[in-house]
Design a protein around this nucleic acid. Structure first.
Lengths: 351, 351
DNA sequence: CTGAAAGCGCTTACAG
DNA sequence: CTGAAAGCGCTTACAG
């Protein structure tokens, strides 16, 4: 899911007021001829109730079409089965895959996850955290290590487990699972250099918001510096980052600096866009210019030429993050409070 | 978000038991020297409280780090600001875009949305509906018009607005916003026939689960029948549907039936996969075989050749569905109980 | 195994 | 504008 903070300013929110579940525990109890608490037990812990009463309750539930009120349950038990997961974007497959990994683990453990979309906006993230804390979650998953101080304060006061997933580093709050984007950038830089490319540029969209992409650029620059090669300012766009932009930036970069012999794109979307544009314009890849990406999406293996890229273990990252949170929620040993899940360089013919 | 029904069978779910919000309304009231109800008002409807008390409350809230308990609020007011949205898949961009349209509208209206992933499984959908009803939502959004009888029963008893989004038809429950996939298939068939293709095949993945794709096939077959052309059994795969499958099915289809001169793929992923494979193998598109898709993803405009496809107004569909639900929630006029949002044929050089 | 009582933290509805 | 009382529908903790 996707949840957003309330934005309505001066209008009180209209909510349905009529009780949906006209049928309550009490009604079921009356029908079954038992006490309400027995109904509660028959539903939550059937083993603890005699077969006769259990059956009576089940029948009553079915006859009345009873649906239990989760708010009441959560309030009474001070426990919620809903775990918020805050990600920067829904339209980026990367986060969806991480979320799926998270969901898998929590689903199996009986929890539900609530996806919040921060739109790469840290202030929005903070608002969402505040809203979600009101649902007394047993834990929270955040994307990234970069948050507003207000977010950090809220979460420290929260006193329940928090895991930050995506990039590896020192957890700003509690636990962390991710990979080093800077190292990944360096790895790609080293690969390009090893291949003999010397005039290497970087293309990114929204580098200011997508600071992980900026970290990959920093890694590339490390490699360039180490090899005494020229570091160039990146080709970027303020607001967009999509396939088409990749193609546009490829053309722009080559016009702007015809000596370029390799371009590292901040992600596979941009890189694939560049490859497709190269196909259309008859630009020889890697003869004229090499192209590399980051993510490891399937499509990179299907283009002509195939795309050299770095695969991030997205699903695994989500799974590990969820497992750590779960362990802490259960007061089990979560292991080290930070994990580097690594990445893999996949070399194809685009470089 | 993504929420799933509890799957844990015999183990009771571990939930955090310690109160997260040790600070309650009452504490704030004491600190501010007012009654709890005044705190409630100062938070929910500030205008109704005098400036002096409002300020006192705000200070107390800040000093104590109060976060209100949403469960208690929802229970007391019998109202929840969370609207469940059930979709068949997260990894399919189509549903994400529809969900984003839905979110936009609800966000502006002060609601949060909770995404449930049914994994194309109607039984799972029914379970999710049951779970979500426990959260007393003010309304529900479902994908598609095909549901189990148990789902329909639950939702009719629900007595609050329900909208079914994706395909256009007779709402099974309450309201419907979508497009006719059969008509869309027919439109593509007519286009191919008008272009002079006579040996036309269909490629789909998971046609049994993805019944909307099957409807597009039915539409194609209508067009073929009307033109007295041969109808062929579709090329399908039981479980997969991805870019790579598109390429595999292209090769398989041409081997199996070399007379084919056009292939209509159930979606753009398959079609783009086929185009990329054709690029690699040197299969001439559309010279040897024409290729068409469905969705209208951006990438179809970037491949060589460009992909002929049908654009569905996904974001708009989501927005309209949300608006209808919202109108009903507010007891305003939602307009007709079903809306055909239509689609657009985009002709590029792949056909 | 079953139940009566108290309470979770809010908001509604009624007074003043 | 402010508040005391009652209650939302469950579960906990204590008895038997």
């Amino acid at each position: 899911m996707v949840a957003q903070p309330r934005m309505a300013k001066n209008s009180r929110i209209m909510r349905a007021k009529s009780p949906v579940n006209s049928v309550t525990l009490k009604d079921v109890a009356k029908r079954a001829g038992v006490a309400p608490i027995t109904v509660s037990r028959a539903i939550n812990d059937p083993e603890s109730v005699s077969l006769a009463l259990r059956t009576a309750v089940q029948n009553a539930v079915a006859e009345l079409g009873y649906v239990r009120n989760r708010f009441a349950g959560a309030l009474a038990s001070a426990g919620s089965p809903i775990i918020p997961v805050l990600i920067p974007s829904l339209s980026n497959e990367v986060f969806i895959e991480v979320a799926e990994g998270i969901q898998e683990i929590f689903e199996a453990a009986g929890y539900e996850i609530l996806i919040g979309n921060t739109h790469y906006d840290l202030a929005r993230e903070s608002e969402l955290v505040r809203t979600f804390l009101g649902w007394s979650p047993p834990g929270i998953v955040l994307a990234g290590l970069k948050h507003l101080e207000s977010t950090r304060q809220l979460l420290r006061a929260f006193a329940r487990p928090v895991v930050e997933v995506m990039e590896f580093g020192k957890p700003a709050i509690d636990m962390n699972v991710g990979l080093s984007h800077q190292k990944a950038g360096r790895t790609m830089g080293e690969h390009l250099i090893a291949r003999g490319y010397t005039e290497i540029g970087f293309v990114g969209g929204r580098l200011a918001a997508d600071y992980r992409a900026a970290q990959r650029l920093a890694g590339l620059n490390q490699a360039l510096t180490k090899a005494s090669l020229r570091r160039r300012p990146p080709f970027t766009h303020e607001s967009r980052t999509d396939l088409e932009l990749g193609g546009e930036k490829l053309v722009e970069a080559l016009q702007h600096d015809p000596t370029l012999d390799a371009l590292f794109f901040a992600n596979d979307d941009l890189a694939v866009g560049a490859l497709l544009r190269a196909n259309r314009e008859g630009i020889d890849v890697p003869g004229k210019v090499a192209i590399a990406g980051f993510n490891g999406f399937d499509i990179g293996g299907l283009t002509s030429p195939g795309l050299t890229t770095i695969v991030s273990p997205r699903r695994l990252m989500g799974q590990m993050a969820a497992q750590k949170l779960l362990a802490r929620m259960r007061n089990e040993d979560p292991g080290p409070n930070r994990v580097d899940v690594g990445y893999k360089l996949v070399i194809r013919s685009s470089t």
